[in-house]
Write a protein that binds this DNA or RNA. Structure first.
Length: 510
DNA sequence: ACGGGAGTTGTTGTA
DNA sequence: GTACAACAACTCCCG
């Protein structure tokens, strides 16, 4: 009897999982499959921490599946070879999975799997995932269809009468010669932990979301912390959207019993808007699957002529640029595998504008640092923060301004850059301005115990920005930018202009 | 959803 | 009450 193979990729959960549900209803024997693909580990945007995280989430998933009467089979190897092997042993009737919108590599891999299925006469049933709409010609319909999908009911975890037992061992990365770096504060893997985290966010942590997300310290507490779970699919986007909506409704209905209901509603609405942005960016990758390899506007990219300077690259990566706030952010990221959105933008902006390094190399390094690496979001952001799309205004951050705004007391800098722990607040954002005598007194000598700034921040930023504007000026570059906007631009209606005339007219009406 | 300069409007303190 | 400087807050523009 042919078996249904449910191939788990970036959807490591049992609830709201359409392929799993469908397999359970078919009546066929079911194999749940997770493949550790060693080839991925050779890619420059994939890190052992990603595979380890997926493996740990899959291990948790295997326990949940066992309780449902199914069993997760772990395999190591190339996806097609693994399928071939399973087909020989069991005879695959159907392959079921979610559509994956990953990087160029996974796109090519899925094409190979598809042609293998076709050769074998095996049906591959792929189900839509998150808010991504496959085979969409233009962006016009996207928002409506995404929102509609988010409103559809969630499905429970199904039961299985005939799951084929997995007799093997869970593979270990170490046995393959990969040793993931140890992350501090790594979240607890798995679906239950993901749901718990969503609940704690909605029940109390998210109250200060709006105030907290811009700051690298507050965002640790008031951010949702759900991103790694979304990347590995421990949590469905639909569940997050629906539960956020019902929480907002609950606050609205019980507003008299709650203090500060409006701020709370604003926070959760803004969280929900960001969930939609998440889908919006992954949709870009869906429609342009080589976003991780080719700039959206290749002409601008060529005009920029950025070069990888090894010394700059190393100092940027390690958080040794001599720009305290940037270094602190880099070190937090390297240590925890996470940093908030705004600081990611600043880190990328420093690489692109101040240090003038090419986006592919810096973007790949960052991808490896983010535990929550999501190709569609990541490479869209990299494109934006390197000025290679041509459709967004150039956003070059000032590290010292951000530092003063987000960390006025310097507490965050002192935590992550201990060399600066004795520097008084007055100089914490610009320690090179300390008088030599003070430097000696506190044993923090700029240029010896902590590096001098790698470049003049103001000057390098100014030069980077003007070179970037110059690169997008030409006729050829402009015409490509226009096309990029048509294909990818957000279809949100432009704000109504509120000029003095309009106001005047309104006043006359009342 | 950038930063910095210029220009504008609003607020406060002082003679 | 008035005049005005000093300064904060805001808007617009440009790279």
């Amino acid at each position: 009897m042919p078996v249904d193979v449910v191939w788990f990729k970036k959807d490591l959960r049992t609830r709201d999982h359409a392929p799993l549900l469908s397999a359970s209803l078919s009546g066929n024997p079911v194999i749940c499959l997770f493949i550790l693909e060693p080839e991925r580990l050779e890619l420059d945007d994939i890190d052992p921490i990603h595979v380890q995280w997926e493996l740990d989430c899959a291990t948790d998933l295997s326990i949940a599946l066992k309780a449902l009467g199914a069993d997760l089979h772990f395999a190591v190897g190339d996806a097609v070879s693994v399928m071939e092997d399973f087909d020989k042993r069991y005879g695959i009737g159907r392959l079921l999975s979610h559509e994956e919108t990953g990087n160029s590599w996974s796109f090519q891999r899925d094409k190979r799997v598809l042609s293998w299925c076709r050769n074998k006469g095996i049906e591959w049933a792929e189900y839509p995932h998150n808010g991504v709409v496959r085979r969409l010609g233009t962006r016009d319909e996207w928002k409506r269809r995404r929102d509609k999908r988010m409103r559809e009911p969630l499905s429970d975890a199904p039961f299985f009468s005939e799951g084929i037992q997995f007799g093997g061992e869970i593979p270990q990365l170490e046995d393959l010669g990969f040793y993931p770096r140890k992350l501090t504060m790594r979240p607890v893997p798995g679906e239950d932990a993901a749901i718990e985290r969503l609940e704690s966010f909605l029940s109390h942590r998210g109250r200060e979301y709006r105030r907290g997300i811009s700051s690298p310290t507050l965002s640790v507490k008031h951010g949702s912390g759900l991103s790694p779970y979304f990347s590995s699919g421990c949590l469905s986007m639909r569940r997050a959207v629906q539960e956020t909506t019902s929480r907002i409704r609950w606050i609205r209905e019980n507003r008299s019993m709650i203090q500060g209901p409006d701020d709370w509603i604003k926070s959760l609405s803004s969280f929900r808007r960001r969930l939609a942005w998440r889908c919006h960016f992954i949709q870009k990758m869906e429609m342009e699957p080589n976003l991780d390899l080719v700039a959206q506007n290749p002409v601008i990219d060529r005009n920029l002529r950025r070069e990888l300077d090894d010394d700059r690259f190393e100092r940027w990566k390690d958080g040794n640029t001599g720009w305290p706030f940037l270094d602190a952010c880099m070190r937090q990221l390297n240590s925890t595998g996470w940093i908030n959105f705004r600081m990611r933008a600043m880190i990328m902006s420093a690489a692109s504008y101040n240090l003038w390094m090419p986006w592919r190399e810096t973007g790949a390094y960052l991808a490896k640092q983010f535990l929550d690496y999501e190709p569609g979001i990541h490479w869209s952001q990299v494109g934006m923060q390197s000025g290679t799309t041509g459709i967004n205004t150039i956003r070059a951050y000032s590290m010292t301004k951000q530092g003063k705004d987000q960390d006025p007391s310097g507490e965050y800098i002192r935590k992550w850059v201990p060399e600066l722990s004795m520097v008084p607040t007055k100089f914490i954002h610009e320690p090179w301005k300390m008088p030599i005598q003070l430097q000696n007194e506190i044993s923090c000598v700029i240029g010896r115990t902590y590096p001098s700034p790698i470049l003049d921040e103001l000057e390098s930023r100014k030069e980077g920005v003007s070179r970037s504007y110059a690169a997008r000026g030409g006729e050829e570059a402009r015409s490509i930018s226009k096309k990029v906007l048509q294909l990818h631009g957000s279809r949100r209606r432009p704000k109504k202009r509120r000029g003095k005339n309009v106001k005047g007219v309104q006043q006359k009406l009342f």
